[in-house]
Design a binder for these strands. Structure first.
Length: 306
DNA sequence: GAGGCGTGGCC
DNA sequence: TGGCCAAGCCT
């Protein structure tokens, strides 16, 4: 199903679309979720906020926090005026709270460097804290309708199956994947942006990691993995994310206390979240080093005011 | 490039 | 029941 299987364009005619574009986009038109960041009234800032929150966090958990965030800080400058700790507090239990700090930092940078408007250029987006290759392409594509290869875990899985014929993509994004994604990108901007959203949604709803639903897939007939009989993943399993008993868990417990507190918290109160003193101290030091927690005199701690 | 970084739901 | 998974980024 690679691009080489596309029909040869007639001489003088525009390039024929890849055989995947039309069915995937038609499926998207019929089945896309009505998510707030996809509505017409969602501007670039709303798209950007959603992308930060969706980094490793499921849609259903993002939705309520996203609504509160946009209501409170409708423009980047509104967030930039706040202490970073307020962003961490409002982040709630979305997880990976450094994202909140980075989103705040991005809002400050947008206010200072871009006149308060989310930049349009991929390179300028990439220069903002918390924005990597994926998020820069996603904002440029979804918010500004530009033509970019948007390679997230969903798209990578769809391509791994449809094009490479394997169940899962490699652990880390490869040059071959980027090349394929660029090759599959429709020529014109609006179609490319539509394709990016559609291929992602297909991976999120149908071509899922577990319990994929090939019967509802609009490209199952062209899918190399399906045609090969859906062979299971070969090789080592992906590195698991241990959590219980790790510093991460301790950090989470400490920060949960500080998020709920309206006044600086004595260390003695924080000490109650974890028995083991060495790990507890290491976790707290890590939070301070990351700028997520601000130490005060007399062993008091709070979310950062600066 | 591997490892660190939250949280909660699901099968 | 607990390992796996969820629109990554940074060092």
């Amino acid at each position: 199903m690679t691009a080489t299987t596309s029909p040869t364009p007639a001489p003088g005619a525009p390039d024929a679309p890849n055989v995947l574009h039309a069915p995937v986009i038609a499926w998207f038109d019929a089945h896309a979720r009505d998510l707030p960041w996809r509505r017409p009234d969602a501007g670039p800032w709303a798209v950007m906020v959603s992308e930060f929150m969706l980094q490793q966090t499921p849609v259903n958990r993002v939705l309520p926090v996203y609504e509160q965030w946009l209501a409170r800080w409708p423009r980047p400058a509104d967030l930039a005026k706040e202490p970073p700790g307020e962003a961490v507090r409002a982040w709630g239990r979305l997880g990976y709270p450094r994202r909140a700090l980075r989103l705040h930092g991005a809002a400050v940078a947008i206010t200072e460097r871009h006149g308060g408007d989310v930049p349009r250029q991929h390179s300028q987006l990439l220069a903002l804290p918390g924005i990597g290759e994926y998020t820069a392409a996603a904002v440029a594509s979804f918010a500004y309708g530009q033509r970019h290869a948007v390679l997230d875990t969903n798209v990578r899985r769809v391509f791994a199956r449809a094009a490479a014929g394997v169940q899962y993509p490699p652990n880390a994004t490869t040059a071959a994947e980027r090349k394929l994604a660029r090759a599959l990108l429709p020529e014109d901007e609006p179609t490319a942006a539509r394709w990016a959203a559609a291929s992602m949604e297909l991976g999120a709803l149908v071509c899922t990691a577990k319990n994929e639903d090939c019967a509802r897939c609009p490209i199952s007939a062209q899918c190399a993995w399906q045609r090969a009989g859906k062979p299971p993943h070969q090789g080592p399993a992906r590195r698991g994310q241990t959590y219980a008993g790790t510093d991460r868990q301790v950090r989470g417990k400490l920060l949960a206390v500080l998020r709920e507190a309206v006044a600086p918290v004595p260390q003695a109160v924080l000490d109650r979240v974890w028995d083991e003193p060495v790990q507890r101290a290491r976790a707290l030091d890590g939070l301070v080093a990351d700028g997520l927690v601000e130490p005060l005199p007399e062993r008091l701690y709070r979310l950062p005011l600066s």
